[in-house]
Structure formats: structure tokens, C-alpha cells
Simulated assay, not measured.
Amino acid sequence: MRTIGEVMQKHLNGGATTLCRAWVVRRRDGRVFGFTDHDTDLMIEGVLCEASSGMDASAVESSTGLAVDNSQAVGALSSLGISDLDIETGRFDGAEVFHWLVNWQQPEQTILQFRGTIGEVRRGNGAFEAELRGLSEALNKPVGRTYLRQCDRLLGDVKCGVDLFAEGLVAEDAVDTSKGRRVIELKHLSTFEEDWFAQGKVTWLSGPNEGAEGLVKVDYRRGPVHVVELWEETRFPIGNGDRIRLHAGCDKQAGTCQEKFGNFFNFRGFPHMPGEDFSLTYPIAGRPMDGARRA
């Protein structure tokens, strides 16, 4: 009995072929999307791949070494497939991608040409372009810890252990006023100090930006008003009354870990690590060598 691969190879060797491409995308939130450049829908590996979805892709080329594969997926932004908001809020970042070559007359005949993840995504003029990264891309990532004075963990992850929803570390409020798409003013955060949310996370709970997340650049008091400035503009205009959730921020310093979060036991940095001046200069009486910048 011949395998599907042998049957497919015979079809390819026949000269006249009935081939198309199909893509299956599995997002990290569990949602699955199927696309094909054929003119009718196809069922591939149990996933309905929709036609007329505007998806296209360059030929897959794999290079030696660990370089990112040069394949790209290009498609139209539509409510039936991938929306502008999906791209803006990063819902497809890191999604798993399967790229199939399919005999559309017999969709069970397939060849898996590519498997990897979505990397950088660019959008504009009603379309998107996504970089496809092969499985070998994971081997490019540093493994192990880095010796730094500051903590190398993300606030709230498993090794950090801080509960981001603990009392005093999270707040919800409605936007009182806004200036553009980066600066918002809140009136019910009087119990929080200035810079409490700096480098923290903001999540939009209502309004046109609902579901989107961002990072806080600075927050400060101006009379009874708490002003929060974001690192990046929101995708859509901010409306008065839009609700947000703010999480406390961390500058990854040892003192902050101890005083703000009471979590120094889990601090993952090396605050007493000698600076470069310790090994490059000779000792001078009365002069500390702690790596600090000096005139």
C-alpha cells in the first residue's frame, strides 16, 4: 500500500497538477484559522481553510544554519479572517503556522512545506505582512541566566512569584479626560503614590480599545488628578469613561523588589556584583569600586 507521500509525488511527476496552498494558524489563545489560495474552501487536517481570504505566501526556502526562514505570509485584513485590531493587539504574535501544499481535487493529499511561528507583523493599507519563523529559530534564543545587577524576570511570572492582582498592586478606574492617545487622567487613584504604575501594564476594559494592552511610561499627581502617560499611542481614540486596569510597575532593582513588593527572596539579579572598574583599575584608598558612573 502506497503512502500519501508516494501518491502525492506521483501526482507531482505527472506534469499537469491540481495544486494550491493552505495555511493553518493556531493562536496562543486556542483559536484556529484556516486559509487557502484556492477558489473553494478545503478541509485540511480537520480545519476548514477558507477561500477568498486574501492570503498569499512566497515560496518557502530553508537555509542552512539558524537564520530565520525567508518565508512571508501576506493577506488582506477582513472581518472574516484577520482584523486590524487582531494585529494591533498582538493576538497573532507567536502563533503556530502550518503551510501545506495540497491537491485540491483530493485534499487528503498534502505535503507539509513549513511549520513555525509568526514573527514580526507589519500592517498598512488594509493588508498585513507577517514574517514566518521556522522551528530552528528557537535555537537562536539565549539559554540560561544573564549576570546583571537588575532582576532578569518579568513581574508576576512564575519565578518572580508576585501576585499582580494582590491588593495595592492593581487598580481599575474610568478615564476622566485624555490628551491624544497616550496621556490619560484619572480621579480615583489618590491612594497610590507617584510612579507606582511606571513600567507597569495597562489593560483596556471597555471602549474601542477593549482587550488591548500597553505599558506605562510615567505616572504622576497633578492636584487630585493622577496622570498616566503610555509608551505608545492606543490604536483607537480614548473616550471619557473608558475603563482601564493598571498593574504596578517594577524597575527590576533590588530595593524596589524589597520595599515595594516585599519579594527580595525571589529577586533574580546580582545587586552586589562588582563593576568593570573593579577589574580594570588599581586600588585607590577611599575610592569605592562599585561600577557607578563618576566624573
Rank of each mutant, 00 (worst) to 15 (best):
L205C: 05
L135P: 01
R122Q: 14
G156I: 01
A174F: 14
C160L: 05
A166T: 03
F197P: 00
W204S: 00
L215P: 00
A198R: 09
L148T: 14
V162L: 06
V121G: 05
E129C: 11
K217H: 13
N140T: 06
V121F: 03
R145E: 09
Y220W: 15
R133Y: 00
G207H: 03
E131Y: 03
S178R: 14
I118L: 15
E213R: 00
V175I: 15
L132C: 12
L154F: 09
A166V: 02
T117W: 05
T146C: 09
V121D: 07
I184V: 15
E194T: 09
E210A: 01
G207K: 00
D176P: 03
R123N: 07
D152T: 11
R181W: 06
A174G: 15
R182P: 08
A212V: 00
G156T: 00
G156E: 09
L205A: 05
R181E: 13
V175F: 12
R133P: 00
R153W: 06
E129V: 11
R145S: 13
L155G: 03
Y147A: 12
L155I: 01
N209I: 00
L186S: 13
L132D: 10
V143L: 15
E172K: 02
K201G: 00
A174W: 12
R182Q: 15
K141Q: 12
F128H: 08
L148D: 06
V162A: 02
R123A: 14
